[in-house]
Design a protein around this nucleic acid. Structure first.
Length: 756
DNA sequence: GTAGGGTTAG
């Protein structure tokens, strides 16, 4: 293309010139100037073209800027620099790298001002390979001693997660600087390297570099993100004592950390700072306050903080739902959730997951299943977080069909390898009585973490499959997983179901000796349970007396339970006395003691315990069972006359009992609370909820199909004998999960071998 | 013109 000289006498040309030389030209003027240039077909010299390019770049018209760039016959480093700078500022990082590579292909070598932009672009894109290539260019161009270039390199490696390379560049810096220090410190904190973070933080001061607000904020947010909330709070207090005023960033981090620690007092302290700094209107802060009060179990403050939000975005709504559920205010959470839906709020998968989790955690399992269905009708797709929130609901009420449906969903959406999903499936199948399915899910997982191993271990323990539990316990260690406190709870519980006293002791002792884990309350409770059930209540009591801390109600409850099993009055009284102090409102303890007395015909004592219960206004917890029939879960209460089909259920039970008596079943009535007539006792037993559930199941399912029942109390001896008898008489497999363990009745025998 | 920091489900 030929090159012409601009006729200086032309007014229009003069206008074009002045437009291109003024940095403040409006976009309209720039476009007019460009149009004129194109119209008259003049190619300006490099300087003027670069001006046009710079103006387009400043106005963020990158397509036009690139067009101009391509039209410059001999672009300079400055032409590219303008565009690269503008692109990086607009966060168009990939484009910026693209222009950089165009520059290199023109054989133009970068100058020091371009490089930090380019290096930052690599960091922002986490483009480590490109970043390393640029690092090479930095070396070859001899610009590696430029201070800003070095600083950006530190940051680039940090952003790409290559903290070691970042450190290498950092260590070669001729002098420490607050910016590079801050970048590296926050990276250490984000990675959870608390020691490294603190070392560098203290070193900074030794080198005479003062931490600024950004340094503190980096440490706080880093610790917060890596779950080192305690460290974050400590640093917040240190910061406070060193006289630094926190800003909105500091406070949103610290509020989040405080929430996770459930440290309300520090939360209130941080809230005071918010007010003092006049930051109460900041969006992030307000959301963080909602989150903090939600986690610190302050339903009132939570609702207040939420009401004060100007803009109730989805995040805040979700925090409110979660917070209320977590505080046990599930009815309020459900009400709020419904309100959001009525108001047409666009709830997302997080909102639905939160309310489902809330239901599962607050005993609203049936509602959780309903919400899961509604969620899908509302067009939302559950994810790998939703499923593990839902599955416990299936397990809690033995809703096997719902659990299987969720499993199908998992397989269809390809989230089966997720550790949370996998362990929730293992647990669900175990609770629904399908331990072989648990094992199948476990075996199918390509990688397993400790939670997965504990899930299958717990499943075997629940089913009393001690041999398998022991195998898993060995295998997990061979696979390189150290058993934790939960693993030991499971293995001890497995031992207790089989009365393995020696092995129980051996596992218990190995905790401290071989694994360096101090035995906690639940381990002592397990051991007491194991010894008590194995008819060694004196040994159990001796262990309680040796405990290094005060035993709680679980421990004494285990002792009382085993005393009931072996009708040991002396120790039973000791345990009950403690329990009446520790949990005076729990009717179960009174019932157990009363049953022990009744078994020895100590009717005066029975009456005395009954009187205490009456005086304290306590009633026996009603027995309650759940059974799933045709995808619907039914609840049956002992002695519930209001159930629509109760007459048919009782008739069926009566019929069964007659049949069973013919083949030798004899009701076991010794445990009944009162000294009542034999026939009445039999009737009371007949109305135990698990029997009602099984009768209901028999009436409403096809012959031969298995039944699964969940019970809120421990199954009684009579019901156990009843189930065994039914399983052979009606040729049905019956799964009963009580508060203690799993019973699988088949062909007249139970998987627990009558030891439970 | 050139480097660092923030909230929301298991």
């Amino acid at each position: 293309m030929s090159r012409q000289v601009l006729p200086l006498f032309d007014n229009l040309h003069r206008g074009v010139l002045s437009c291109l030389t003024s940095a403040k030209s409006s976009l309209l003027h720039v476009c007019q100037a460009h149009a004129h240039i194109l119209k008259v077909g003049i190619i300006y010299d490099t300087v003027l073209s670069s001006r046009l390019l710079a103006l387009y770049s400043n106005h963020q018209c990158f397509a036009e800027a690139q067009l101009v760039l391509h039209s410059i016959p001999e672009p300079s480093v400055l032409s590219f620099a303008n565009l690269i700078y503008a692109l990086t500022r607009s966060n168009l990082l990939a484009l910026s790298l693209d222009v950089f590579s165009q520059m290199l292909s023109h054989d133009i070598w970068p100058e020091y001002r371009i490089l930090p932009n380019i290096i930052n672009a690599c960091g922002g894109l986490s483009a480590l390979e490109t970043g390393k290539q640029v690092h090479g260019i930095v070396f070859r161009s001899g610009l590696d001693s430029d201070y800003f270039v070095q600083g950006s390199l530190v940051n680039m490696y940090v952003k790409c997660g290559e903290i070691r390379d970042a450190r290498k560049v950092f260590d070669r810096l001729p002098q420490r600087h607050v910016v590079s220090c801050s970048a590296l410190i926050s990276a250490y904190a984000r990675k959870g390297c608390a020691d490294e973070t603190m070392r560098l933080f203290n070193e900074m001061k030794d080198f005479g570099v003062k931490p600024n607000l950004i340094t503190w904020n980096g440490v706080l947010s880093g610790f917060n993100q890596s779950g080192h909330c305690r460290e974050a709070v400590v640093m917040f207090q240190k910061m406070h004592s060193e006289g630094f005023q926190p800003d909105d960033t500091t406070l949103s981090s610290i509020l989040s950390a405080v929430g996770d620690l459930e440290e309300l007092n520090i939360g209130i302290q941080a809230h005071c700072c918010v007010i003092k700094q006049g930051l109460g209107q900041e969006r992030y802060i307000r959301s963080a306050l909602v989150d903090m009060y939600g986690k610190c179990a302050c339903a009132l403050e939570l609702s207040q903080a939420f009401d004060e939000l100007d803009e109730k975005d989805i995040g805040a709504c979700n925090a409110l739902i979660t917070g209320l559920s977590r505080n046990g205010a599930i009815y309020l959470a459900l009400k709020v959730f419904e309100q959001f839906r009525v108001e047409g709020m666009e709830l997302n998968v997080v909102s639905w997951t939160a309310i489902i989790a809330g239901c599962t955690q607050n005993g609203k399992d049936i509602q959780a299943l309903e919400l899961f269905r509604e969620m899908q009708s509302a067009g939302l797709k559950p994810n790998s977080v939703t499923i593990p929130c839902l599955l416990p609901a299936c397990g809690n009420i033995a809703a096997l069909m719902h659990g299987k449906a969720a499993h199908c969903f998992v397989l269809r959406t390809g989230i089966a390898d997720d550790h949370h999903v996998g362990s929730a499936l293992i647990d669900m199948y175990a609770k629904c009585g399908r331990i072989h399915m648990s094992r199948l899910c476990f075996d199918k997982m390509p990688t397993k973490n400790l939670v997965c191993w504990n899930a299958i271990l717990g499943g075997y323990a629940m089913h009393g499959k001690t041999k398998e539990a022991k195998e898993i316990f060995d295998l997990m260690q061979r696979a390189g997983h150290k058993p934790n406190i939960i693993s030991f709870c499971c293995i001890l519980s497995a031992c207790s179901h089989s009365g393995l006293v020696e092995e129980g002791w051996s596992y218990f002792n190995s905790m401290t000796k071989e694994h360096g884990i101090e035995a906690k309350m639940e381990h002592y409770a397990s051991m007491v349970n194991l010894l008590g059930r194995a008819a060694k209540p004196e040994e159990a009591y001796a262990l309680i007396k040796q405990m290094p801390f005060e035993p709680n109600a679980c421990v004494w409850g285990a002792l009382l339970g085993s005393c009931r099993l072996h009708n040991n009055v002396g120790l039973g009284e000791i345990a009950a006395k403690k329990l009446f102090e520790l949990e005076p409102e729990n009717p179960g303890n009174y019932v157990l003691l009363s049953n022990i007395y009744a078994s020895k015909a100590m009717w005066t004592e029975v009456d005395a315990v009954r009187d205490i219960m009456i005086n304290r206004g306590l009633k026996k917890n009603p027995g309650c069972s759940w059974i799933e029939i045709k995808n619907k879960v039914h609840m049956l209460l002992a002695g519930d006359k209001s159930h629509r089909e109760m007459p048919q259920i009782l008739e069926k039970l009566n019929e069964l009992s007659m049949e069973m008596k013919k083949v030798g079943y004899c009701p076991e009535t010794d445990f009944v609370l009162q000294n009542v007539e034999e026939q009445d006792k039999e009737q009371m037993l007949g109305e135990h909820s698990e029997k009602l559930a099984v009768a209901y199941g028999l009436l409403n399912t096809s012959p031969g199909s298995p039944l699964q029942v969940i019970k809120n109390l421990r199954i009684c001896r009579d019901c156990h004998a009843f189930m065994k008898s039914i399983s052979s008489l009606e040729e049905r497999e019956i799964f009963v999960w009580d508060t203690n363990r799993f019973h699988h009745f088949k062909d007249g025998i139970c998987s627990c071998g009558d030891f439970w």
